[in-house]
Nucleic acid binder design. Structure first.
Lengths: 191, 191
DNA sequence: AAAAATGGAATGAACATTCACTCTATTCAT
DNA sequence: ATGAATAGAGTGAATGTTCATTCCATTTTT
């Protein structure tokens, strides 16, 4: 119960602190304290701060795809699939606000840009459920004739913004509102 | 020619560095060097780093509204006004990439959240061209029945995302693409 | 009793901010 | 008009603080 136990605590503490305070409100000493661990112990599990930050990102990324594709059938009609993925994505953001906030931090940092660039070049892995979906949509001519990043912007732009507002309390997202949000995004991308 | 000269240089250097490197890649010493000024001099014009960051934001904010409302008539039909403002906004982002990157930095930082909260409470100033526009749209029932933050999300979400992609080179925004982008946002909000 | 893991004090680097001093130009006295 | 005095902008080395990271004495596991 020791090996993964401490690592787990460190990851949890780091996630909490980074999400709540941002990367710069979370010194290693604080993470250690929050994890109930000595400062040096972190370095047994993570080579340095940057690597901790990146590992954390990878863990969250690995977690999100299963959540989103739960109950997803790639045989369903395009619109249904779009609504499904969009809804699940937004739900993930508001059900795991700490994860969401962490992901946002990451994306808006130098790490995120570098990461994104790598992704677009060697286009492997990623949220390729969406990539796949949009490419099919283009092929079937059910979505507007836009490059992929544009389609992503039209979906994720609003969703991230709305999730942020919900978490900060500027907006109340209930089931019905979530549904209407995704429908509005659909209006934006449908041909 | 001395008084505003140095201040101007400091502001310019800070904008460049913050936009290019993020708040954390820009120590005061570097800003001073880039401005051709002694490190202490910055403190003659700005009480401290935080205040420099905030003043810079205010300057940019003051600059954007005139740019956006250039050629704008609040008598025009709703759709035309929406397209006008959306287009101008996006143009601003891509014509002044440094300003845009700075504004993004700011919004994604603790400063930004605090600022936003203040704005929503004592709702004065802000991009209230948009606030006004959306409120009229609701009243005239030409836009979907959504709270204001949702309408903002459906417009600014995609625009910011797309501007970012353009600046980072992930996407090429020419005149026609800009127009089509705003039209897609219109599809999202129109009733 | 090794070996591995842990804690946390110690270290050193990076930085924001300060302050004693310099330099310039404006005012004042002659 | 000339030189002395003053004000205050400008400077950057020195200071103090905040961290990430290291190191090793101690504890735990094998």
């Amino acid at each position: 119960m020791t090996k993964p136990d401490k690592r787990q605590e460190i990851v949890r503490a780091a996630l909490d602190l980074f999400a709540e305070q941002g990367f710069h409100g979370a010194p290693m000493a604080l993470i250690a304290e929050r994890a109930g661990v000595g400062a040096g112990t972190i370095y047994r599990y993570f080579e340095n701060r940057d690597i901790l930050i990146q590992e954390l990102y990878k863990e969250l990324e690995a977690e999100i795809t299963p959540f989103i594709t739960d109950g997803y059938s790639d045989q369903a009609p395009f619109r249904a699939r779009f609504l499904h993925l969009g809804t699940r994505f937004l739900r993930y953001c508001i059900e795991y606000p700490l994860h969401f906030r962490y992901l946002e931090q990451f994306h808006n940092s130098p790490y995120g840009v570098a990461y994104r660039r790598d992704k677009l070049l060697g286009k492997e892995g990623q949220c390729n459920v969406f990539t796949e979906l949009f490419e099919q949509g283009c092929a079937q001519q059910v979505v507007k004739d836009f490059p992929l990043p544009m389609l992503c912007a039209l979906l994720f732009g609003p969703l991230l913004s709305v999730a942020r507002d919900h978490i900060l309390g500027f907006l109340q997202l209930d089931d019905s509102m979530i549904e209407r949000t995704i429908e509005a995004c659909w209006d934006a991308i449908k041909r």
